[in-house]
Design a protein around this nucleic acid. Structure first.
Lengths: 219, 219
DNA sequence: ATTGACAGTGAACAAAGTTTCATAGAACAT
DNA sequence: ATGTTCTATGAAACTTTGTTCACTGTCAAT
């Protein structure tokens, strides 16, 4: 995953802040004014870049309509293995949005079965401590069946810094995939839990969307 | 606060649901399509009414830009369970409360920690259809392991009339147990899904709390 | 030197979206 | 009977907004 440039990150941050403050997205011209661009096309280019890098989705033709990837860019070289787990005694199944299908790359709610629906929470940083913004992803495919996560299941993802051995939702080539995170001699790998797919995916730069905390399986 | 008419409330609910699902507001034409209006002006009038009644704020001229009054605010960090009933236009929301723990084990596996929390009241009492009052129960014991429901899992229960083969939460001797419901020649049995346990519990009088719809398993 | 990615200007277009105008039936209270 | 409010149609005007095209400059790597 490519890194965001400073300006791209600034624009993305501004957009998120705008949503947080106003409850609706800024227009391209709003962004233009904010950053003192002389042309809307400057913004346009940045938005294209943000979309290409997988952190923003635009809805073509629609005004003030965006989705942001529920990601937290994690620098895995930092060894901050601190995790505040969810309160084990109070599992709240209610506060979990279904973000979409996990191989689909982007939140898309068309297939929501009506069991859990959906919120994409605009990420508002800068606020003080807040609970981790969990979300749910529907699993497609069989790459994790040895971890007892099957096609059609829904996994609950929590943002956070993953440890070795955690099952994580990671953005690979713009697609969200579910893999086990392997740290081996200062290298990072992603591993499918299916003996038919034995390979490790080397991963230098990763966008971790979060750590899989639980599986929801329809009966 | 003036009362909202049914249609006004439906439109407001739809807008909130749209934000929840897509992370951006619907356009007037989106609403028009949803409610099958022949004119955008129908929507326009409703939006004016919503604004006059103080539950919605429009940003004049701006596309897909609204704010909702605090009473009508959708907490974007909170998720809703959506029930899609026959009335498409009135969306109901409710949360799933965690009711307590359930005994999936043998009858002598009793350690009643069965303090059940109170169920949440239905949200919109004025409507005809009410959403099923789902709730969650933590599983204790191993009587359902052959159905892949294990100790520590959480099951989502929905009230309703169970069919043959459904896994139900039933009250037996004052304790909630999880069993598969078997209807055999006009008789009713409850069956543990563990081959080490006796197969059938005859049940003449049953209190069914609901049908297990999904399992949540921590990773 | 040249290529290619990145960042930007400036102008213009077309679609999307909001708003206004004219009109009308139904329900309801005066 | 009569006016008012609510709801709705249908068409049109108008603004906002996303998108495209042509062009310029910078910086780093080939």
């Amino acid at each position: 995953m490519e890194e965001l440039t400073k300006k791209q990150k600034a624009i993305l941050d501004y957009m998120k802040a705008h949503v947080s403050e106003h409850s609706y997205w800024p227009s391209i011209r709003d962004i233009q004014a904010k950053f003192r661009f002389a042309s809307t096309n400057a913004v346009f280019g940045h938005l294209q870049a943000l979309e290409r890098k997988g952190v923003l989705q635009r809805i073509p033709g629609a005004a003030r309509a965006y989705k942001v990837a529920p990601e937290a860019t994690v620098d895995l070289s930092e060894t901050v293995i601190r995790y505040e787990g969810p309160d084990e005694n109070s599992l709240e199944v209610s506060n979990i949005p279904l973000m979409g299908s996990i191989a689909a790359g982007f939140p898309d709610y068309t297939e929501s079965s009506g069991v859990l629906a959906s919120i994409q929470a605009p990420i508002s940083e800068g606020s003080r401590r807040r609970p981790p913004q969990s979300f749910a992803l529907r699993v497609r495919g069989d790459s994790m069946i040895d971890a007892n996560i099957n096609d059609g299941d829904t996994v609950i993802i929590e943002p956070g810094v993953p440890k070795h051995g955690d099952i994580v939702a990671a953005l690979i080539d713009g697609e969200t995939t579910l893999k086990r995170l392997i740290k081996q001699s200062s290298k990072i790998y992603l591993k499918a839990e299916n003996k038919n797919y034995p390979e490790l995916y080397p991963a230098n730069e990763l966008v971790i969307q979060g750590i899989a905390k639980s599986v929801v399986r329809p009966i």
